[in-house]
């Protein structure tokens, strides 16, 4: 018996070590990206990185502002496309659709979350980009194309988290409101949406993180010009594409600058994660 007890103690210790794998990996990744990316930022001054308009690595000009603006403009567009649609789906799935319909529709939406981003990018190239070029002008490879494709890509994420937020509400909220004579829509607008707000905020923030972090689809359809986009039809380069496009051949300071791009992306994502974590923690209280 004592042998078994000793074994159990060893196992507990081993499992504790294993349990820290995710945290340690996170720490190692953070350490590596920062140690490779921050020295060059301080050598040239963070201001020139964050606010510089010119990205000419061969001339040691590493201005990342066009990419920062690019990432945010594409993401804003994606939210504009994706969030209202996702909320509509979440409301329909939880409030209007019959149980049976919801049981069919929800898995369809979730299954499509698995479609690889390269496939979305490809659809962008062969369908959306030519459509924009022919009907709205410009090169087609644009902020708009990226916003539409990313807007579609974030749908499954935002829908499933918002659906969870609605389903986590006590049924009495809905029942009470209906019993008072409110229509379902009034109930949604005045009772359920405010009550599920923190969950929905978390869903939107996570969708935003997904859009900002997306790489391959954006490279394929955004045009990748390293300049601040002047219109929705102008080509754009995001932080992620900046890394992926030049990683293959960069060396020396150029490579360090790509890691600096990674640092900025990392900081943005961590801020978003923390916000989403806060929002969903508030729900549990």
């Amino acid at each position: 018996m004592t042998r078994l007890e000793r074994n159990d103690r060893i196992i507990r210790l081993a499992l504790l070590l294993v349990a820290f794998s995710a945290v340690s990996i996170l720490i190692v990744i953070t350490a590596f990206i920062f140690s490779e990316g921050t020295p060059i930022m301080f050598r040239h001054g963070p201001g020139r990185f964050l606010l510089g308009l010119d990205w000419y690595p061969s001339e040691k000009l590493f201005g990342l502002l066009p990419m920062i603006v690019g990432s945010f403009s594409v993401t804003a567009g994606a939210l504009l496309v994706g969030v209202p649609t996702s909320l509509a789906c979440a409301v329909v799935l939880t409030q209007f659709a019959s149980k049976r319909t919801a049981r069919v529709l929800k898995p369809v939406i979730e299954l499509l979350a698995g479609i690889p981003s390269v496939v979305y990018g490809f659809i962008g190239i062969v369908v959306i980009v030519p459509f924009i070029r022919d009907n709205l002008g410009g090169p087609g490879l644009s902020v708009l194309a990226a916003a539409i494709v990313l807007g579609i890509m974030i749908l499954p994420t935002v829908i499933s988290i918002s659906v969870d937020a609605f389903q986590a509400l006590p049924p009495s909220y809905r029942e009470g409101s209906i019993a008072l004579g409110a229509t379902v829509w009034q109930t949604v607008r005045m009772v359920l949406l405010p009550a599920a707000r923190s969950g929905i905020v978390a869903a939107v923030i996570l969708g935003m993180g997904r859009a900002i972090g997306e790489t391959m689809a954006v490279i394929m359809i955004a045009g990748n010009a390293a300049a601040v986009p002047t219109s929705p039809l102008a080509p754009v380069r995001t932080l992620t594409s900046n890394i992926a496009l030049e990683m293959g051949y960069a060396s020396g300071e150029h490579r360090e600058a790509l890691f600096a791009t990674g640092v900025i992306l990392f900081v943005i994502i961590m801020i978003l994660n923390t916000l989403a974590n806060r929002a969903s923690a508030r729900r549990k209280v």
Partner: peptide, 25 residues
């Protein structure tokens, strides 16, 4: 809480940063 937060953050990191990290390490 620390373990869960670590896992959640890891889940949020974009794949390109994993690529960058894997490449350098």
């Amino acid at each position: 809480r620390v373990i869960r937060f670590g896992a959640e953050c890891l889940a949020g990191i974009p794949s390109i940063l994993f690529g960058l990290f894997g490449f350098i390490l």
